[in-house]
Computed example of a mutant assay.
Amino acid sequence: MIETERLILRAFIEADREPWAEMNADPEVMRHFPATLSRAEADAVIERVNGKIAATGVGFWALERKADGLFLGFAGLNCIGHENLPIFGLWEVGWRLRREAWGQGYASEAGAAALAHGFGPMGLARILAYTAVTNTPSEAVMKRLGMMRAAEMDFDHPLVPEGNPIRRHIVYVKDAA
């Protein structure tokens, strides 16, 4: 568990399942992804994420707002496991928040905490972030986190069909100080 001024980053709990499923079924939240998620798919993500957290102590943690315990989404660190990606095996920082949490600095706050954990206790030398080229809000968070564009690492996502506007992905990196 990691705490920031306004957030708690922790493993998912049973009470998170419904708001997580609703968030991932929201076409606006998922507009930079190939598709929304069904309830079963959303539940499967929780199982995978919590499994990684249990095994390694890190992952995409659930975000809880300290003030009222509201579930906001997720953020954290992940070792990229898609073997088809050119960035396979590298560490990423990532986030996904419910619409009501947008524009309040939560992604930046959680991302900064995740980066601090990655560079601090984990001792990582480099952490990257990637997103669809259309996802300018996430790109803005990457910039606020002090990440630098690594255009030479950009790629076409193999799980997104050719011609789809979200196929091209951009990469940002941050190195340990």
Rank of each mutant, 00 (worst) to 15 (best):
F33N: 04
F33Q: 06
A35E: 15
A35F: 05
T36K: 03
L37E: 02
L37A: 02
L37K: 09
R39A: 07
A40S: 13
E41H: 05
E41P: 03
E41Q: 15
A42R: 01
V45Y: 04
V45I: 09
E47A: 13
V49W: 03
V49Q: 06
N50E: 07
G51N: 05
K52R: 14
K52E: 14
I53V: 08
I53A: 02
A54C: 00
A55R: 11
T56L: 12
G57H: 07
G57P: 07
G57R: 06
G57S: 09
V58Y: 15
F60I: 00
W61A: 03
A62Y: 05
L63C: 02
E64V: 13
E64W: 02
E64S: 07
R65A: 04
R65D: 02
R65F: 01
R65I: 04
K66Q: 07
K66F: 00
A67V: 12
D68H: 10
G69Y: 06
L70I: 03
F71A: 02
F71W: 02
F71T: 01
G73K: 02
G73I: 03
F74S: 06
F74K: 07
G76P: 11
G76A: 13
G76D: 11
L77D: 03
N78V: 12
N78E: 12
N78C: 08
I80L: 15
I80V: 15
H82R: 15
H82A: 15
E83Q: 12
N84G: 15
L85Q: 04
L85T: 03
P86I: 15
P86H: 10
P86R: 13
P86S: 14
I87Q: 14
I87W: 13
F88L: 08
F88K: 13
F88S: 11
F88T: 11
F88G: 06
L90Q: 11
W91T: 09
E92F: 11
V93E: 02
V93P: 01
G94P: 04
G94K: 03
G94H: 04
W95N: 00
L97I: 07
L97K: 02
R98P: 00
R99P: 08
R99S: 12
W102F: 07
W102Y: 08
W102V: 05
W102Q: 07
Q104G: 05
G105V: 11
G105I: 12
Y106I: 09
Y106E: 06
A107S: 09
E109H: 11
A110I: 11
G111R: 08
G111Y: 09
A112M: 14
A112P: 05
A114G: 08
L115Y: 14
L115R: 12
A116M: 10
A116H: 12
A116W: 11
A116C: 10
H117L: 14
F119R: 03
G120K: 11
G120Y: 10
P121N: 12
M122I: 10
M122R: 15
G123C: 13
G123L: 12
I127E: 06
I127Y: 08
L128M: 15
L128V: 14
L128E: 09
L128P: 01
A129H: 13
A129N: 10
T131Q: 13
A132F: 10
A132V: 13
